[in-house]
Design a protein around this nucleic acid. Structure first.
Lengths: 227, 227
DNA sequence: TAGTTTTCTTGACCTAGGTCAATTTAAAAC
DNA sequence: GTTTTAAATTGACCTAGGTCAAGAAAACTA
């Protein structure tokens, strides 16, 4: 009965995503009518740079990475879409092309809404529009913060804070890193080699135990000191 | 009759800001009713980190810088608010405190709208809400781009692109840098010393002439090559 | 289970650019 | 004007972390 989960995806989109929360019943109904569901296997692309950006994408189950390729060919991770996250900023205005890639990191269900449908919906549902503004506002705040961190603090500090956040998010001081080192590296604006080295160092300093992608935080206070 | 300019500020806010463009007449009227006008002298703060963020601020005339202080005490410029720009993301949702500083760089007129007024207005004016989503979407795209640049390209490259943008914005290959080197430095995630050195180098390479804050671009193609 | 491919680790090396300090220049105040 | 204060430049130095290369260890695949 694996299929069952998928049959509920539409509903999940509505439940999972904060922008759809506390919408009046009639708006929710309209949302469910214009949502279409898609499935991606791990490694498949939700979109490529250059595609026209005309669809709002909501991750109902799974995980996808969004990244850009810089002028010099380097890959830069922009964000990881988790269950409930949506990718919209570029999709919802004007006739822009995508300037990033989105790739599923595992089997992933995505709910999609076309730009025109969504814009119409926003016009009709003030509450939804306000929710969108809030969601975008938070994302902007977060991006500004990230920008500040990346230019003012060391790789060690950023890695420490990444580990603490990941641990907190999973609610366990013992966890497996959710991304390959290469991906963590481009996310933190560094290289896999440096990640390896810094983890070894932290391990030497008894801040954590580390084997491959497995991490056990031993001294979270010590890690916080690095941030 | 200097005061005259100020008496028109309310109106200016409505005209200048893209989010208020193409709003129905009745919405515009309401906006003008809830806007209040404030004047800041160069150096004065529009707000400090820690202040409660409950006001949307629109720059009607002048220029202000928005910056954060990182954990290690370093200053990081987030953005320069030009005439017509507004600072809103943090102000418009929840009971957040400001996490940044905004300081006028010259005499500056600011139109302010309280959060509650603005949220009410958004609920009543779907068009305004859609405009906000668009504005925020563009800002997100830009921040993501900036993030990618700062982590993947060299200071030289970022400076070159900053110079080209500034020149293009002013529509003149001969211009005075609109910010102190220190500010440009924190904006580009570097130091004043490095800016000085890179400019000297570019000057040696006959890409530009430079004296203090005065710049004349001699070879914009050459500069583009550095990006 | 062996073979293939991808990811991770470690060492050796190097350089962009940060830091600190001393002048010079420019801007503000008096 | 002269004095004070802030900003910009330049030199000397140093280090975080990037690059390249070679093994080791996982992760797939057939």
């Amino acid at each position: 009965m694996v299929k069952l989960a998928h049959e509920h995806t539409n509903e999940d989109c509505l439940k999972l995503v904060t922008i759809f929360q506390s919408l009046p019943e009639k708006d929710l109904k309209r949302v469910s009518e214009i949502v279409s569901e898609h499935h991606f296997r791990g490694g498949e692309f939700l979109y490529h740079a250059g595609d026209s950006a005309d669809t709002l994408m909501i991750v109902a189950h799974g995980q996808a990475k969004v990244y850009q390729i810089a002028a010099n060919g380097k890959e830069q991770m922009i964000r990881i879409l988790q269950t409930g996250d949506f990718d919209g900023e570029a999709a919802l205005f004007e006739n822009n092309d995508r300037n990033s890639f989105a790739q599923a990191l595992m089997d992933t269900d995505v709910c999609m809404i076309s730009r025109t449908d969504f814009q119409q919906l926003m016009t009709d549902s003030p509450k939804l529009a306000v929710n969108m503004v809030n969601a975008f506002g938070q994302r902007i705040t977060q991006l500004e913060q990230q920008n500040t961190e990346v230019t003012t603090s060391s790789v060690e500090s950023r890695l420490a804070s990444y580990l603490l956040e990941t641990s907190a998010g999973l609610n366990d001081e013992r966890f497996t890193l959710p991304l390959k080192k290469k991906d963590i590296a481009t996310y933190l604006g560094t290289t896999p080699e440096t990640i390896s080295r810094k983890l070894t160092k932290m391990s030497d300093d008894n801040l954590l135990e580390n084997k491959g992608l497995k991490v056990k935080i031993l001294d979270s206070d010590g890690l916080s000191m690095l941030v």
